[in-house]
């Protein structure tokens, strides 16, 4: 084992942070698994009067935010200040739009007269609410990464904040896709 594991260089420090974030995200994957189990135990395979278009758009916008974040990470690692600032801005906007669409879906679903206490109603609000909570956190960390980037210029040796925010957004976008599949389709 190399000495740098004792007094970590920036590179091994980055590896340990990446590893830690990977462990965090793997642990968070337990939550969608639990929710999917609850969904089938309570509401079987029934699907309520949800708006498929809104669901698809919310999931796709999450993926777009993650894609833009990945591009921003690349720009940050090359020290392209204008590039990562703009890309992070669009990533935040996509995540916020995804949040807005989920809220619109909530209002539309409530408008159909389906009770929140009905089997599908409660799994709908719980699963989409969890998705919403993750999106809020992801939008916040992307926003924080952008603000930080304006004060502390990212570069080849300093882009962990963008990378962490992007990895989290990527995880959230997958949660969105899985939630859409199990809540709106299956």
């Amino acid at each position: 084992m190399a000495l740098d594991t004792y007094d970590p260089s920036e590179e091994s420090s980055l590896a340990s942070r990446r590893g830690g974030l990977g462990i965090l995200l793997a642990a968070q994957a337990v939550i969608p698994v639990v929710l999917i189990s609850v969904r089938f135990l309570l509401a079987s395979e029934s699907v309520g009067p949800v708006n498929q278009v809104l669901g698809v758009l919310a999931a796709v916008l999450g993926l777009v935010a993650a894609y833009l974040g990945i591009q921003a990470r690349g720009a940050a690692s090359r020290g392209e200040r204008a590039g990562y600032d703009s890309l992070l801005g669009w990533a935040v906007a996509s995540a916020v739009l995804s949040i807005a669409l989920l809220i619109v879906q909530w209002i539309a679903f409530y408008g159909t007269g389906t009770s929140p206490g009905s089997p599908y109603g409660e799994v709908f609000y719980v699963m989409s609410g969890t998705w919403l909570m993750y999106l809020l956190i992801a939008a916040f960390v992307l926003f924080a990464a952008r603000v930080r980037g304006r004060r502390v210029a990212y570069g080849p040796d300093n882009y962990w904040d963008v990378e962490a925010a992007t990895l989290f957004m990527s995880f959230v976008s997958l949660v969105g896709v899985v939630t859409y599949l199990f809540l709106y389709l299956i």
Binding site: Q28, V30, I31, V34, G117, S118, E122, V126, G129
Partner: peptide
Amino acid sequence: WLPEIQITYLMNLAERLVPLNL
């Protein structure tokens, strides 16, 4: 297991506040 019990308690909390029938 902690994320598992946390989401369970958050569902309990939602059941209490909304209320739901989980």
